[in-house]
Structures are given as structure tokens and as C-alpha cells.
């Protein structure tokens, strides 16, 4: 029997597979057994009530999507009174995710939702910082660190910092949030993109820009996971482009301690369960006793020092 359990950022999970924030909701429980997941990650909430951005909200590519949803949020009371009780009954640890317009609000919201039924809180720092003219917190190392410090000051729950891939040096961001006390980093949120309709000469998304997600982003995020894992001691959670158990293994080899599956859940509701089964078979086949042994087990050719992996020559 392979030991699939992992402990990530203060949370013990029976396997390393969980949904990415915003990729499942109550409807998923109508189709799959949420009890099988390593953890249940909830969609980001904000302190205020939000309706989200103007439709259209999705554009499709061959193996990716460009979504702009805008974090519709029913606020923290709805989370505690409805969402958490709904997901708590399935068994796996429940991870909340929060976002806010200011550092102080991140802190206050983390304190407000601190609850024994919540195992950790993700800091979604990919959202715009109102004090910095809407530039994402996550693009600014100082603001990112401030968010984590403010959250840690207001809650005893572990904090997972969800990094944005829309930065030049993601490893530096990982180091900053680690320094501020984050218990894990999630690498990463969606890649900023844009789509235009040539016929109508207008943007395809109501919000003009959106986040590129799905299998196509895998090579980019896999590289970032590897860079983050080399930069920090806290666990790295891989997120972006994962669709299969084989992807899960690749992310773990690159340095991830656990993974999150997002867009794939929209197309293949059984993907998370199938991935768990695939990883178990893989470990059996490879004679690997503990899935956690895969983390960082990538075998690099001896002549490739890690410094050279920060650049590319074509």
C-alpha cells in the first residue's frame, strides 16, 4: 500500500490532490465524491458583496480557457453559515480563500473567518491593490509580504500565499511571502491574457483581460513551481495546467508537495479522483512507498547547475 498522505503548510491531507480555488462549488458534490480529495479549497471571498464582471466571461482555446469572472462574493457570513457547513460534511480539510482591496482588510477578513472548521486560508494576492492604482498585490513583493504579515497577525490558521505568475521573478515573490511567515506558497494563479474578435473589432471578454488557465499553461507553471521550490523551505503547491495523474507526478518531481486542479474540473469532473488513482498506481509501479518522496525527486543531468535554469537561449 502506497502512503499517499502529505502534510502541507500545517494541513495533513490523505492525498496531494485538491481543487484550485474557484474551480468547484456545491454542484461538484452532485457528480463526484468530494470525500476522496486531499482537501477542499473554496472559492475566494471578499469582505464586501460582489456580482463579478460583465459577461462574456469565458473564451476557449484548443487546450486552455481565458476566464474573467471578477470574484463574485457573498461575503464572509455566507461563507461561515452556508459554504463551510456544506463542504465540512465530506471529511477532507476545508481551505478558505480570501481577497481584499487593502492590506488591512486582508488581515481583518482572515481574523473574521478564523473557525475550527477551516484548516487554512489561502491569500489570493492576484487581485488589484486599490492603494497602488489597481496593480495586483502579488506583483509587488512588499505589498505581498504585508498581506501575509497582516493575516498572520489576525489568525492562528496556516496561511497559504497564492502567487501570481504575472511577475518577472516568481522565486523572489515566494521568498518574500516566506519571510513574512506564509506556511506554504501556491504556484500559481492564472496568466494574464486578452482576446479580440477580429470581425466585431471588440474584446471577447466583458472585462477585456482575463486569466489563461488549463493544460496549455503547464510548461510555464511547471517551471515556476521548480523555481519556487528551489527558493523556499516552505512547501510549494503546484497549480496551473494540471489535468492528469501524470501531471501531478511531474509537478511533484519539480518540487511541489501537493497540487491543485482547476479548469480541468470544468470539463472532466472525474479528473481529480482519476489523478489520485493514477498516482497510487504510479507509486506502486515505481516501488515508491510514500508519495511525499516524489517531491523534488527530479533527476537533473549532472551538467546543469540550477543557476542556468533562470534563462533560456533558443
Amino acid at each position: 500500500m502506497v502512503d499517499l498522505s502529505v502534510t502541507v503548510g500545517g494541513v495533513r491531507m490523505k492525498n496531494p490532490v485538491m481543487p484550485a480555488s474557484g474551480s468547484i462549488a456545491e454542484g461538484m458534490a452532485d457528480v463526484v465524491d468530494l470525500g476522496r480529495l486531499g482537501a477542499i479549497v473554496l472559492k475566494t471571498i471578499t469582505p464586501d458583496l460582489r456580482q463579478g464582471v460583465k459577461p462574456p466571461r469565458v473564451v476557449e482555446y484548443t487546450d486552455a480557457t481565458l476566464f474573467s469572472i471578477g470574484i463574485p462574493s457573498k461575503g464572509p457570513d455566507y461563507l461561515l453559515n452556508h459554504t463551510v457547513p456544506f463542504f465540512d460534511k465530506f471529511g477532507p480539510p476545508v481551505i478558505a480563500s480570501i481577497s481584499a482591496d487593502t492590506v488591512e482588510d486582508f488581515g481583518k477578513l482572515a481574523g473574521y473567518i478564523t473557525d475550527p472548521r477551516i484548516a487554512a486560508i489561502e491569500a489570493n494576492i492576484s487581485c488589484p491593490n486599490l492603494r497602488a492604482h489597481g496593480r495586483a498585490f502579488g506583483m509587488d513583493p512588499v505589498a505581498s509580504a504585508q498581506v501575509i504579515t497582516a493575516m498572520k497577525a489576525n489568525t492562528t490558521l496556516p496561511i497559504w500565499a497564492k502567487l501570481t505568475p504575472n511577475v518577472g521573478d516568481i522565486a523572489e515573490m515566494a521568498r518574500c511571502v516566506e519571510g513574512a511567515g506564509a506556511d506554504a506558497v501556491i504556484t500559481a494563479n492564472a496568466i494574464l491574457g486578452m482576446a479580440i474578435d477580429a470581425e466585431t473589432m471588440t474584446p471577447r471578454l466583458g472585462n477585456v483581460v482575463g486569466g489563461l488557465t488549463g493544460p496549455a499553461v503547464k510548461p510555464v507553471i511547471l517551471r515556476m513551481v521548480n523555481q519556487c521550490a528551489e527558493a523556499v523551505k516552505i512547501p510549494v503547491i503546484g497549480c496551473g495546467g494540471i489535468a492528469t495523474g501524470e501531471d501531478v507526478v511531474e509537478y511533484m518531481l519539480a518540487g511541489a508537495s501537493a497540487v491543485q486542479i482547476g479548469t480541468t474540473n470544468f470539463v472532466h469532473t472525474s479528473a481529480m479522483e482519476q489523478s489520485i488513482d493514477w498516482v497510487a498506481d504510479y507509486c506502486t509501479r515505481k516501488g515508491i512507498a510514500r508519495v511525499s518522496d516524489l517531491t523534488g525527486a527530479l533527476m537533473l543531468p549532472g551538467d546543469q547547475p540550477s543557476e542556468q535554469r533562470g534563462a533560456v537561449a533558443l
Binding site: 454542484g27 461538484m28 452532485d30 459577461p55 466571461r57 470544468f266 469532473t269
Partner: peptide, 16 residues
């Protein structure tokens, strides 16, 4: 009818 992502109420793409 609306453009849909997931069909299960998870992605919030098809709102009206």
C-alpha cells in the same frame, strides 16, 4: 441560453 464554462454552477461564466 448563455455561454457556459462548467455547466455545474462552479465557474460563474454563464450568469445573466
Amino acid at each position: 441560453e448563455a455561454f457556459m464554462g462548467c455547466g455545474l454552477g462552479m465557474c460563474f461564466a454563464c450568469v445573466v
